[in-house]
């Protein structure tokens, strides 16, 4: 059952997460700022309202599963796990450093609360399908398996192998989320390799599709509520329309900030922008 927490409280969590993202990038020296900031609202809503996970017992069998298929956004994921109590907040200071448990891409053997090692794109949905099958076979019909993907990631053929099987096996507890920030390393998705109409593609693959503004917490909350209440026998796909770098003006909609390093002035500017958010 989702927790009883208001949209305005979730917005505060998303804002705090954005601050932790830029702070962690500063500790790390650089990071995937654009895609981490774009998915911060979705992550905050998942970890502070929807996911049934417990930092005191991160491996409990009846938990919901979460796979960060866009693994390069560990820069958002690990700070989110820290805020949720899975890892110590001060451990973020070692992000990317020698022998740190945290690098650019999350390692499930090292990051407490992380359900899957990711980084190579297109791997999350197949693993999520396996988890959902495994849960069902063992009698768990209630836990959700949430897979957060990038939009550039949709180019990977294995995404569609996974999608086809999620539908075939009637995995109604699978929730695929596409962080539709419309950019990838080499440019805009529609210039590099067009993915539209992405909603129709998931519909055609047998998903119940929900489209929302992924940077508007009220819409994110409503979309996840609908996904959680899914009473069809289909898997769910949420297309979260977001803006890359959302929250920091200089990064927003700027393909150059897929990945980068901030100097101290820019860091201060980023913090100030986020603090000025609603």
């Amino acid at each position: 059952m989702p927790k009883d927490i208001s949209v305005s409280e979730l917005k505060k969590k998303a804002k705090e997460l954005r601050l932790n993202i830029v702070k962690t990038a500063n500790f790390a020296g650089s990071g995937h700022l654009g895609g981490s900031l774009s998915c911060a609202d979705v992550l905050a809503a998942l970890y502070f309202k929807y996911l049934n996970v417990d930092p005191r017992d991160p491996d409990k069998f009846d938990r919901d599963r979460f796979i960060l298929s866009k693994g390069h956004c560990a820069l958002a994921y690990v700070p989110c796990l820290a805020m949720a109590g899975f890892v110590p907040m001060d451990s973020l200071e070692h992000f990317n450093h020698y022998e740190s448990p945290y690098g650019m891409h999350p390692d499930s053997k090292k990051v407490r609360g992380c359900d899957a090692s990711t980084g190579s794109l297109g791997h999350g949905l197949p693993m999520g399908v396996g988890m959902a099958l495994g849960l069902r076979y063992q009698g768990n019909l209630t836990s959700k398996v949430v897979v957060l993907m990038g939009d550039g990631e949709q180019d990977e053929g294995s995404v569609w192998e996974g999608a086809m099987s999620a539908h075939h096996f009637k995995l109604k507890n699978v929730i695929a989320i596409v962080d539709r920030n419309k950019m990838m390393i080499d440019g805009r998705t529609e210039d590099v390799m067009s993915i539209e109409p992405i909603d129709k593609k998931y519909e055609a693959f047998g998903f119940e599709v929900i489209v929302c503004n992924g940077n508007d917490m009220a819409e994110v909350d409503a979309a996840l509520a609908k996904a959680w209440a899914n009473d069809t026998d289909k898997p769910v796909c949420i297309i979260a329309n977001t803006e890359k770098g959302y929250g920091v003006k200089r990064f927003q909609g700027n393909v150059k900030w897929h990945y980068g390093a901030m100097n101290s002035d820019l860091f201060k500017e980023a913090v100030a922008d986020i603090e000025a958010m609603d």
């Binding site: 399908v129 396996g130 495994g134 086809m164």
Partner: peptide, 28 residues
């Protein structure tokens, strides 16, 4: 029959699904 999953002609999915099954404590 409820313990064999045929993913069709999709070997990337085959091993991803196997990993996911193992993540729930099974021996695939």
């Amino acid at each position: 029959p409820d313990r064999l999953f045929n993913v069709g002609i999709a070997e990337q999915n085959l091993f991803g699904v196997a990993a996911g099954l193992a993540k729930t404590g099974l021996i695939p």
